[in-house]
Write a protein that binds this DNA or RNA. Structure first.
Lengths: 343, 343
DNA sequence: TTGAAAGCGGTACCAC
DNA sequence: GTGGTACCGCTTTCAA
C-alpha cells in the first residue's frame, strides 16, 4: 500500500493524505482522523526511500568504525555509547548507518557518505589529541559531533567528560589517604582522554611538590591483560606502589588478578581507583566487590550526543555545541588505610 | 554534481552516462572512458537516495539488536561478528543499518523495516531454541539469515557451528584424561547453542555410562562473574570437580580467578576447556596463558553470513542456505594429568 | 481546506 | 551505440 493507493481509497489527493499524515495544520480535523484511521487499518508505512529522495534528507546518522581499531569495538564503552545513541535515533525517527572500514579509509568513507547523501550527520568516537578527522569534516561541511575532543577543542561540537579534573581528584583522594607511590595505568596517550587524565594525575602530584615516578606510569590498550601484567611486575618490584589509578575497569580487573596472585587484598593491602561509570574505589572485602557498576553514564552520553547531533542536522548553521560533564567519584564503604608495604 | 549536469557537460544523455558508469555493455569503449574520466574529475557520486528509489532496492542490510539484551552487545562475539559482516557489506556496496530497539519491539521493527523498504535483508543473531523471529520473518518474506539456529532448523537459512559435536568432543577429551567430575558452565539454555552444548556434554558422559551430576551444571549469562562465582563455590565444595568445560572465554576467566584464589593452577591442578575461537584447553603454567586467541573464526562467520544474505537478497527464490561449521579443538602444550583432589 | 502538478536524481524500457 | 521518456513514491509549491 502506497500513498497513491491510500489516497485513492479515501477519495482524496495524495497531497491531502500526505499532509494529514505529516501533521500539517491546514488539514481539517475530521479529514485527518479519517486518513489516520485508514492508514492504520491498511498498515500503511511511507516508503522511506521515496521520502528521503523527496525531502533531500537521509534521516540517517553515520558511525564509521575503523577496523584495525577493532579493539575499540570490543571495548564495552563503545557498545554502551552506541546503545545510548541508538535509543535516541529510534525515538527521533533516524536510522543508524554503521560503517566498518579499514583504518586509513575512514576519511574517504566520510567523503563518500557526504557526497552520495547517505547520512545527515556523523558521530565521531575515540578522538586523538591530534585528529585529522575533525578538520576533514569541517571542510566537508557535514554536521558532526565528537565524543571526547582533541587538543584544540574550538570550532566544532563535542561532548566530553572532565577527564583531567577527575584524575586530579582521584589522585588527591589517594594522596589524602597517605599514599605516595601511586601507579597510573592509562590508555594509549595518543587518545586525548588519556593525555588529559595523565595531566590531571601529574597536576595533583605537583600541587604537593611531588612528581610522577616514570616507572609507575604505563599506557597501553585498556585490557585486563595490560592491568595484570603491569601490576604483577610492579607488585614484584623492590618498592611497589601502594595504590593504582586506572583508566578502565578492565585494567582494574587485571590489577585485581595480580593482587589475588600476590596474596593482596584490594582496599586493604592495596588501593585501586578506576574510571568506569564515574570513578570507583575498588575493594574485594566482604564478598562481592563493587566492580559491577552499570555503565549508565556512557549510555547517557550516547543519548545526549545523538540528541545534539540530530539538532545540528536540523539547524546546521547554529554554532557548535560543547558539553563538559563532571565525573563523580563513588567510594566503596571503606577506602581503607594506607597499606603497609607488603612483604 | 549530479547525473544531469555530468551528462550535460559531456554532451551526452543521462541514459548513456548512467549506462557507462554502471557497466552496461552497449556503451562504446571510447565513450565509456570519456564518461569515467569526467566522473572522476568531477568527483561524481551517484545520489544513493535517488538510486535506491529508482531501483527499488535499499542496498542495505539490517541488524536489529534488542536493548534489554544489551549484554549481547557487550559480548565480544557480537562485535566480532559485526566486524566481519561489515567488511562484506562494504565490499559489496551494501550499507549496514543497525537498529537498537527495546526487547519486545524487535518484531515490530522487522515489520516496519520491511514495509517501509529500508532494508533488503536482515541478519538474526542469538537465536533461541524456540524463536518467534524466524516465523515472523518467513511470513514477512524478507530475506534473512540466522547466525545459529533454532530447535527446528528447516526452511530458512542459517550458519551455525557444530556445538553439540564440539562439546561432546571436549568432554571426551577430559574423560580420556581421566576426569570423572566435570563441571559445565554454560550460557543460558534458552539459547539454542547452549542447549546443544549441554546435549553434547551429556551424550559423551552417557556413552561411558556416566550421567551428569546436576550440581556440576550451571547456566547463566556468560560473564566473568558467573565463572568466578560458580567455580569458587565448586572449589570449596566437598567433592570439587577436577575439570571445567565452559561456553565462553569470559566464564573461563572467572574460573581462572577462582582457581588463583584457591591456590590452584590451571592445567596442573584443574583442567579447563572453553569455547572461544574454537575450543581451547587453558593453562597458566609458564607465564602467559593461552587465553589470547583471536576471535577470527567469529569474524569469518560474520563475513560468510553476510555473503549468503546478500546472495539471498539478489535471488530470494533460491532455497535456504544452511552451513554447519566444525569446531576445532586447540590444545595447549600440555593438557596436564588428572589433578589430584585438591586439599 | 483541498488538489494538480512539478520536482527529487536516478534507472530502465523502447525507439531510432 | 545512443537518446527520449516514463517511471520509482513521496513532498511541496502554487492555484483553486
Amino acid at each position: 500500500m502506497n500513498l497513491k493507493e491510500l489516497a485513492a481509497s479515501l477519495n482524496l489527493s495524495q497531497t491531502t493524505v500526505s499532509r494529514a499524515l505529516n501533521g500539517y495544520p491546514e488539514v481539517r480535523a475530521e479529514t485527518r482522523a479519517r486518513v489516520e484511521a485508514a492508514a492504520k487499518a491498511a498498515n500503511y508505512q511511507p516508503n522511506s526511500r521515496a521520502r528521503r529522495l523527496a525531502t533531500g534528507r537521509a534521516m540517517t546518522i553515520g558511525h564509521v568504525i575503523p577496523l584495525s581499531d577493532q579493539h575499540q569495538m570490543v571495548n564495552p564503552i563503545f557498545s554502551d555509547f552506541l546503545a545510548g545513541a541508538g535509543e535516541t535515533y529510534a525515538r527521533e525517527g533516524y536510522d543508524l548507518l554503521l560503517s566498518i572500514v579499514p583504518a586509513g579509509e575512514v576519511e574517504a568513507a566520510y567523503h563518500k557518505l557526504a557526497t552520495n547523501g547517505s547520512v545527515d550527520g556523523l558521530m565521531i568516537q575515540g578522538p586523538r589529541t591530534e585528529d585529522s578527522r575533525i578538520a576533514t569534516l569541517q571542510e566537508i561541511g557535514l554536521p558532526f559531533i565528537v565524543h571526547g575532543r582533541s587538543a584544540d577543542p574550538e570550532g566544532y561540537s563535542w561532548l566530553d567528560i572532565e577527564n583531567r579534573a577527575a584524575f586530579q581528584q582521584a589522585t588527591d583522594l589517594l594522596l589524602d589517604l597517605g599514599h605516595r607511590r601511586i601507579a597510573l595505568l592509562n590508555g594509549q596517550e595518543y587518545f586525548d582522554f588519556a593525555s588529559r587524565r595523565r595531566r590531571g594525575f601529574e597536576h595533583a602530584l605537583a600541587a604537593r611538590g611531588l612528581t610522577a615516578d616514570p616507572s609507575l606510569v604505563f599506557e597501553a590498550e585498556m585490557t585486563e591483560e595490560f592491568g595484570y601484567r603491569s601490576a604483577s611486575t610492579l607488585m614484584q618490584s623492590d618498592d611497589p606502589p601502594t595504590a593504582y589509578l586506572t583508566s578502565s575497569i578492565l585494567i582494574a580487573f587485571g590489577v585485581r588478578r595480580a593482587a589475588v596472585e600476590a596474596g593482596l587484598s584490594l582496599g586493604r593491602d592495596v588501593s585501586v581507583v578506576t574510571h568506569h561509570d564515574g570513578l570507583s574505589y575498588l575493594k574485594n572485602e566482604g564478598g562481592r566487590p563493587d566492580f559491577t557498576a552499570t555503565r549508565s553514564s556512557i549510555q547517557s552520553a550516547g543519548r545526549r550526543a545523538a540528541e545534539i547531533l540530530i539538532e545540528l542536522t536540523r539547524a546546521p548553521d547554529n554554532g557548535p555545541v560543547q558539553e563538559l560533564w563532571p565525573v563523580e567519584l563513588t567510594l566503596g564503604q571503606s577506602t581503607g588505610p594506607v597499606p603497609n608495604r607488603h612483604p
